[in-house]
C-alpha cells in the first residue's frame, strides 16, 4: 500500500491533500474511467444547454416537414409529425437522465437502509431478504411494467417502478459488505462500550460500506436509463407526446426504413449514457478497491 506510508511525517491536512492528489493521479491513469466521466459530463451538459441551441420546441408539430433527413436546419432531421428530432432528443435526454438519476438515488438510499439493518438484525434479515428474493425472481422489465400499469404511466411512477425493481440487488450488495464490517473487532469494541445500534450502524458501518455502494449506484444509474427507455418504448413509461429516448425509438420503429435517423440518434444517446456510466462505475471500483487496481501496481 503505497499511499499508506507516503507522507506520514507531514501534518494532517497536508497528508490529506497528498492522499487526494494520489487518488486523482490513479484516476487519471485509468483512461477508460476518464473517458466514461467525460461522456457522462458531456451528456449532462448537452441536456442542460441543448434546448437553447435550437429554435424548435420538442412538441412543435410541422406536418409540412414530416420525416425530413438531417439538415442544417433540423440537425437530427424531423419525425413523423414534423417535430424537430434534435429538440426531442435533448428534452428526452433531460427526462431520461433525471429519471435515471432519481431512481438510482432513491434505490441507493432505500437499499442502504435495508442492507444495513438486515445485516445488523438477524430476524429482520430473514424477513427482508426473503422479500428481496421474491422481487429478484421476477424479470426486471416485467415487474416494472406491472408496477407502472398499476400506478399509471408518468415519469414519477417510472422512478418508483425502477426503484422497486433495483432495490433488492442494492440491498444485497450493501448487506454483504456490511456483514464483513460487522465482524470486525471495532464493532465489537463499540458494543462493549455500550454504543447505540444507531451509532454503530450509521456512524461506523455505513462509511465502511460506501465503496461498493457508490460503484453499484453508478451501475443502477445506467440500468435505470435502459429500463426507462424500455418502459417508454413499450408505452409503460413516459407517455406521448412528451419525449424520452425510449418513446422516440418507439415512434421511429414504424418508419425505420424510411427515416433511419429517428432510430439512430436516440439509440446513440442511450448507448453513450450507459457506456459512460459503466466505464465510470468500473473506474470507481478500481479506484476505491486497491486490491483490483491495475493502475496502483503500475504507479509503483
Amino acid at each position: 500500500m503505497e499511499i499508506n506510508t507516503k507522507g506520514v511525517e507531514h501534518i494532517g491536512s497536508e497528508l490529506k491533500s497528498e492522499k487526494f492528489k494520489l487518488l486523482f493521479r490513479r484516476f487519471l491513469f485509468n483512461k477508460l474511467a476518464v473517458v466514461g466521466t467525460v461522456i457522462v459530463i458531456l451528456l449532462c451538459l448537452f441536456s442542460i444547454v441543448g434546448p437553447f441551441m435550437t429554435k424548435y420546441g420538442p412538441l412543435d408539430i410541422d406536418p409540412m416537414n414530416r420525416l425530413q433527413p438531417p439538415s442544417a436546419d433540423h440537425w437530427f432531421g424531423t419525425d413523423n409529425f414534423g417535430r424537430d428530432l434534435f429538440s426531442r432528443v435533448v428534452h428526452g435526454g433531460r427526462v431520461s437522465l433525471v429519471v435515471g438519476f432519481s431512481a438510482a438515488l432513491l434505490t441507493a438510499i432505500i437499499g442502504m437502509i435495508i442492507g444495513l439493518y438486515s445485516s445488523y438484525y438477524r430476524i429482520l434479515d430473514h424477513v427482508l431478504m426473503r422479500i428481496c428474493d421474491g422481487l429478484i425472481a421476477f424479470p426486471d422489465i416485467l415487474l416494472a411494467i406491472a408496477i407502472t400499469a398499476i400506478l399509471g404511466p408518468n415519469p414519477f411512477n417510472v422512478v418508483i417502478a425502477i426503484t422497486i425493481v433495483k432495490v433488492p440487488a442494492m440491498a444485497r450488495i450493501v448487506r454483504s459488505a456490511a456483514l464483513v464490517v460487522k465482524e470486525q473487532t471495532y464493532i465489537e469494541a463499540l458494543k462493549a462500550q455500550g454504543a447505540s445500534s444507531w451509532r454503530i450502524i450509521w456512524v461506523h458501518m455505513a462509511p465502511n460500506t460506501i465503496s461498493p455502494f457508490l460503484v453499484q449506484m453508478t451501475y443502477v444509474f445506467a440500468l435505470s436509463i435502459i429500463l426507462e427507455a424500455g418502459l417508454s418504448f413499450l408505452g409503460a413509461g413516459v407517455p406521448a407526446p412528451n419525449p424520452s429516448w425510449g418513446n422516440i425509438l418507439y415512434d421511429g420503429k414504424a418508419v425505420i426504413f424510411r427515416a433511419w435517423w429517428m432510430t439512430l440518434f436516440p439509440s446513440i444517446f442511450i448507448t453513450l449514457a450507459v457506456l459512460g456510466l459503466n466505464l465510470l462505475g468500473d473506474g470507481l471500483r478500481d479506484l476505491l478497491d486497491p486490491h483490483t487496481s491495475k493502475a496502483n501496481k503500475k504507479l509503483k
Partner: peptide
C-alpha cells in the same frame, strides 16, 4: 468495565480519526 482487544488492526475503525475514537467513548457515556 472496558475491554482491550487482541487484534490491533481491526479494533479501530479504519475510517475514523484516532482522536475521534477516544472522544466517541466519552460521548457514548
Amino acid at each position: 468495565i472496558q475491554m482491550i482487544f487482541q487484534d490491533p488492526h481491526s479494533s479501530l475503525n479504519p475510517k475514523q480519526r484516532i482522536g475521534h475514537a477516544i472522544v466517541e467513548t466519552m460521548k457514548i457515556h
